[in-house]
Design a protein around this nucleic acid. Sequence first.
DNA 1: GCGGGCACTGCAATCGATTGCAGATTTTTC
DNA 2: GAAAAATCTGCAATCGATTGCAGTGCCCGC
Lengths: 363, 363
Amino acid sequence: MSLPPPRDPDALPGASPPRATIADVAREAGVHASTVSRALNPATRGMVTEAVALRVAAVADRLGWRPSAVAAGLRTRKSRTIGILVPDLINPIFPPILHAVETLLAAQGYATLVANTDNDPAREALLIERMATHLVDGLMLASAAAGTGAISLCARLGIPAVLINRRMPEGAGCAAVSAVTNDDRHGIGLAVDHLVALGHRRIAHLGGPEGVSTATDRLQGFRDRLAQHGLEPAALRPAQAYTREAGRAAMQALLAEPGKGFTAVAVANDMLCLGVYDAMEAAGLRVAADISVTGFNDMPFVDRIHPALTTIRIQHDAMGRQAAEILLAEMADPTRPRQNIRLVPELVIRASTAPPVQEPACR
Amino acid sequence: MSLPPPRDPDALPGASPPRATIADVAREAGVHASTVSRALNPATRGMVTEAVALRVAAVADRLGWRPSAVAAGLRTRKSRTIGILVPDLINPIFPPILHAVETLLAAQGYATLVANTDNDPAREALLIERMATHLVDGLMLASAAAGTGAISLCARLGIPAVLINRRMPEGAGCAAVSAVTNDDRHGIGLAVDHLVALGHRRIAHLGGPEGVSTATDRLQGFRDRLAQHGLEPAALRPAQAYTREAGRAAMQALLAEPGKGFTAVAVANDMLCLGVYDAMEAAGLRVAADISVTGFNDMPFVDRIHPALTTIRIQHDAMGRQAAEILLAEMADPTRPRQNIRLVPELVIRASTAPPVQEPACR
DNA sequence: GCGGGCACTGCAATCGATTGCAGATTTTTC
DNA sequence: GAAAAATCTGCAATCGATTGCAGTGCCCGC
């Protein structure tokens, strides 16, 4: 077991005890610093005699030596640090993903640098630059939206990156970066199938913010599946952001739209659904009874909102793990072919969907 | 504006373009590297002639030079990185706190290393060691529980630390570390007052895991305030952890307890309340109508669960900001007296509390 | 018994920036 | 106009670990 380095008896209360360095260990063990380095690094340990390795390890332990990731990083140009950018940690779908990523990376000895972009491309670029400054070995981007230069910035900086939950549009350098996403088209299709099976014919879509792959894919999937059922969208409207407030505003607008009327709305994201509930409550409409609502993500606690949300469950955990694994693999071999993984989501039926009433509640 | 460094035309696809160093800038600008360093560092820029500084800055910009935090850190022993340890990022009270911390620190040029301890003291110690390895300038601990050596480990490693949301027990080295917490005793008192005002006389407490300051303070506050009303606790039971499942188990046990019976339960934490709702549903009891429930934290979305939770709202944002400010101040001046800040929470009345029924629903 | 080969270990350079010190230049002052 | 002071800038060491190369010693085979 390691002991703390001996405290300097007359050290100032605020002064930290000087950490033992590799040179201290070398002196104490009677060998050269380079030998210490080799003995203590599992990868090079075979290069030194067993006896020396043991002695060095014992001394290092006694002195409480800890490697300096900074010094090693300067020489090796690797920091054993991975950066993770999320648009907004407050959105509860991210913590589970992050947890999976962090757990896997920590087991491999990596530390994770986490930052919020707040959906601001300028801030995103700044944070990537800053992470480059800290010499991150790789980046996980849960924040990338079309048009932000995030991917090309990473490429320019020479930082391996993978996308989580979002992907680049087909064609546009799609092959340049790996991504682990949900099969968003299929997912929203499940919601449409469910609503149609319940008897709904006038179905609206409340989408995500433009430029975000989850939004465009879900919109696309919505139209396609509806068409397969021989139906037309009853109404379409994107939210300004994936927030509760944006969901409320968009639903309010949808309800105010003249004409058509709809008996169900497939919403692009659970967070938006909270706003949809708010808007419906304000308009005196009942979820399920008047208008059926489906979400997307099955984020924590939506089983406890009222009425419990019918939604599409995604694989947070697998998403985080797979993305981390791909990143590690690409760091080890940058020429590795890029991957585009789609995890398949499933429908979770709860209480926010019901057969339509005869007369559409909304106009 | 900064331009990317010129691409090497025959660079391998996987090869990253070599970053410009301070020496490159020095050569190009016709000055010594030390002058470049001084010219580019805002703090030392005054030591250099304006004209030289401008010229160096121009060259640096043209070459796309970015400082290497790693190299600078090696020399200065500062990484411009702050570590943050949370017990479990999935608990939604942490993301808002983290967001506030991250935003404030990022504005000061700090990056944040985030890790989950999963409530495991061994993992916590390991992570602290690893962060020390990465030379973090300071640590924010949202995970500290009594008995873990986290604080003394930080002290031994010479890393300034502040506690968030949790604090050390009085006496036990309480002065050794600053903490920003809620006034948990007062907070739970508000819940008790509210329940008593509604007419409840048989009130139970479902507490947090033992050894965690939020749990002991809230328990203490519960007893004290109840005593002030001339009442005794109807029942007391700690949960094993701050999780939904632990809440369910504890509530189930509470409901099975023979004797007394209670018409209301003050729960130590919103997350536990979700489990309480689960247990009551399973037992065929209605929240509010049969047993009133109060939470703590006002975490996101509890206004949308059914029935909407009456709870104690804490100041996430202020908590994060103040803790970050204190940490920065203590990093700048380690002899600074420690602070113990208690933020005052407020009661948010929703639908999970109601006057008691005549006959206690539970036994 | 001698040379070749192998297995260790030490030497010294290196990563990229910072900083105490000293030298050089300019400015100030008498 | 010279001495003193102030202002810049360069030199070189330094932070702590890694690693290519060279050297030493040992073992083995012929």
